[in-house]
Design a protein around this nucleic acid. Sequence first.
DNA 1: CCCCCCCC
Length: 231
Amino acid sequence: LCKFECDFRWCIRARVTRKTDIRNWSNKRGDGKLFSVDLMDESGEIRATAFNQECDRLYSVLQPKQVYLIRGGIIKVANRQFTSIDNDYELAFSSETQVEPCKDENVHKLPLLSFRFVKFDEIPRTNRKQLIDILGVVEKIGELEHKVARASQRELLKRDLFLIDDTKTAITLTLWGNEAENFKQHGHPIIAVKGVRISDFGGGVSLSTVGDGQIHVDPDIPEAHKLRGWF
DNA sequence: CCCCCCCC
């Protein structure tokens, strides 16, 4: 792979493990809209983003959990500050990008989910510049709270989840916006969350979600079954 | 090309 943006004739067969909503942005360089997908094949995972025309063209084509053949597009260096995906590169779809559903009978072998969990007792020593994946039992579900951001004066919705894992370490995870509002679980679900931020406010360590669509409740993965047995 | 992610 080259170190600058380039448009190779590459082809991958991969499952969509996460799809974001469409988001609009506006800054001094311009404005536009985008969505992104996380793609997984036998070798690992990579994030791909569709901007503007490609956002319109591909948003309804790419669906969560489905497998696609994807050809061509821009390969660029990933910024680990904004993803927990273990890949030095990211993709951006271009007008050259071709996407078609893959009907191959072997596609079921591609896993639905992929995580690199950090145990709670390791979080205090973990690099703050990278997002992490976490797995925990929800010991207590906080109420939905209304806040106002000091800097922007925006109204915020938040909800704290009080988690514990099998290192017997407790930690608080703060959900925001739709995720806070829509968390309607009861009892003690196990949650797996990809790409959470570590926060050091007030001397203690806590966690905060970024973005949307990444909380998996009672995921059907071996680590979750093991944690359920422990709890 | 996004990359803001907030509060105590």
